[in-house]
Write a protein that binds this DNA or RNA. Structure first.
Lengths: 330, 330
DNA sequence: GTTTTCCGGAGAAGCGCTTCGACTGCGTGG
DNA sequence: CCACGCAGTCGAAGCGCTTCTCCGGAAAAC
């Protein structure tokens, strides 16, 4: 491998000049720049990442911490990762992939100076990692909004806003009795804040539109779907529409409705908020803009690795797509 | 951050001694080892990754190249990634995530000495990256088997073997007319070798068992499933069993069968080879051991970063799981 | 008793890069 | 005409680590 010294020799300049040509941190005459660039491409020179990191104390690598547990939709995670990687690459950064083994991993990659910053997915309301991350003192973006962000930036989907849009859509169609099929009990137990935030948006939106409501969590099984339906109907007789915040339970829910002869949207309108599922029936609803969240995370992070900056909470919204699963009540 | 010099000072030894204690590359007396370790933990010392990489020309990072196109099952990719990451961590390595932007990424991470080796997913029969990777000269493991591996190691699922097992299972039940629902046309077009390898295993196994067969690719849509069924029946009247190598088409296939009143397994037995799908109906079949493939990839790779070694092609098999979708023909 | 071996440790030379300070001409303004 | 500033370049000092060489002393060999 060619080194910067080789390039300098070929170009007939000093190593520092080559460095300045490459970094653009000092003025260089057009003639010298041309000679250096010629030498660089002739030798196929590539700066050594380790040497660069050592001298500049910046690595050009960001850590991405993704969840392992199967409570999250893999499709959404994939899209998110894709957004992160492509955006990082667009800004000349690479991604180091960490799984949620332990908080020790966070400690390790920061204190060995392996990465310049971190993006941490699936942050719970009282996530113990948030305190650790704040203490580590590296630029960090949390995906999810904890109760106390400890001064870190957050990026997430605006679940409350999405619920309000969903409710407003149903209210505009004339629905008066609307149920909420909530997230899985396990995700609620885990303290994933989005379940509560969506629920609050749902209730606030319904109250504003003067709707009567019911809400219940829903396990992603056939029995879970039936139980949730029964529970909702016990709270609220004959709802004419459902907001579903549970892509995993959706197939079971649709199967249960089909089995009892309930037609969508003729007898019941459904708006889904969450991961778009390619395999199941497409429903009217708001999709989590996972790609955009990934992109935004990296952008927020890089702004803060470049220069110190106040933390920020950025909530992204998405538009309601009509896929024919809602209609006016009969 | 504490440096090795700080540790040396606190422990009352030289920096080189600290280095040898940490790497274990030389004999150290118990007394000094204890003093050094005490100093390390007191200062919370962590070696700087860049400095280490510069001096030792090893980074402890492996590149993982994952596909973006949605022709692959995200669940399988996730499992695979999980196997890669956990195995790498178990051997004190980290994972740098690359997407298939371009072959330029491969070039970049190797020639800047960012990584010690590469694991490249979803290798096609004539994948252009294989030649590039061979030229780069870093330890590499291909997941998938190209026509010419250029001296690189390969790890993959034994699709041919899986098909033989599936066919043998059906033959043992007494089936004589068996159809193969193949991979999607787009994956075949892409040159993903597994489609052909499974097909060959299917045909060989069927021939050995004296079965009559038909085979057709299948698009992952409702019409695709119907067309594939029609095509199979045109080639082979009234097949009593199907081997399905297409998890994406499976829901549509089952729906089509259901719609025409064909019962599984009463009227038709089905063996599925591929990604286990949590959402759809569980079928008898062989699951791609994605986690194990990830694990094996890293192990094969690390064996070759540690010391030069001949390339290897490792095909992993899995066991047939009976989930009640096969029965003796009537 | 002397010589050889071996063990444990220190010293120093890089690894390849960035960046600070210094130097050299050259054009400007006083 | 002289200081002065400025663009353009170089030299050198690290960044923090690994690893080669060397060295003293104790143990083993003769």
């Amino acid at each position: 491998m060619a080194t910067i010294a080789d390039v300098a020799e070929v170009a007939g300049v000093s190593a520092s000049t080559v460095s300045y040509v490459l970094s653009g941190k000092r003025a260089i005459s057009a003639a010298t720049r041309a000679r250096v660039e010629e030498a660089v491409s002739r030798l196929g020179y590539r700066p050594h990442a380790g040497a660069r990191a050592l001298a500049s104390s910046r690595t050009g690598v960001l850590a991405l911490v993704v969840p392992l547990h199967d409570d999250v939709d893999v499709g959404v995670v994939m899209q998110f990762v894709r957004g992160v990687v492509t955006t990082a690459r667009a800004h000349d950064h690479d991604i180091l992939l960490l799984t949620q083994e332990e908080t020790a991993g966070l400690e390790r990659v920061t204190s060995t100076s392996l990465v310049d910053g971190l993006v941490v997915l699936d942050i719970g309301v009282d996530d113990p990692r948030v305190g650790v991350l704040a203490r580590l003192g590296r630029p960090t973006v949390l995906v999810g909004v904890p109760r106390d962000p400890h001064g870190l930036s957050c990026v997430d989907f605006d679940f409350a806003g999405a619920a309000r849009v969903a409710v407003a859509h149903l209210a505009a169609l004339g629905h008066r009795r609307v149920g909420l099929v909530g997230a899985t009990p396990s995700s609620v137990r885990r303290g994933a804040g989005y379940a509560d935030r969506l629920r609050e948006g749902f209730l606030a939106g319904a109250a504003a539109a003067g709707l009567t409501t019911a809400a219940a969590p829903c396990a992603a099984t056939a029995e879970g779907a039936r139980a949730c339906l029964a529970e909702l109907r016990a709270q609220l007789p004959a709802p004419t529409a459902l907001v579903v915040h549970n892509e995993a339970a959706l197939p079971h829910l649709l199967a249960a409705l089909d089995a009892e002869g309930t037609r969508v949207p003729d007898d019941l309108s459904i708006v889904s908020v969450g991961a778009p599922d390619a395999r199941a029936r497409a429903l009217t609803g708001l999709d989590v803009p996972a790609l955009d969240i990934g992109r935004a995370s990296v952008e927020v992070l890089l702004e803060r690795t470049a220069a110190p900056r106040a933390p920020e909470v950025r909530l992204l919204s998405s538009l309601l797509t009509d896929r024919g699963s809602t209609a006016a009540p009969r």
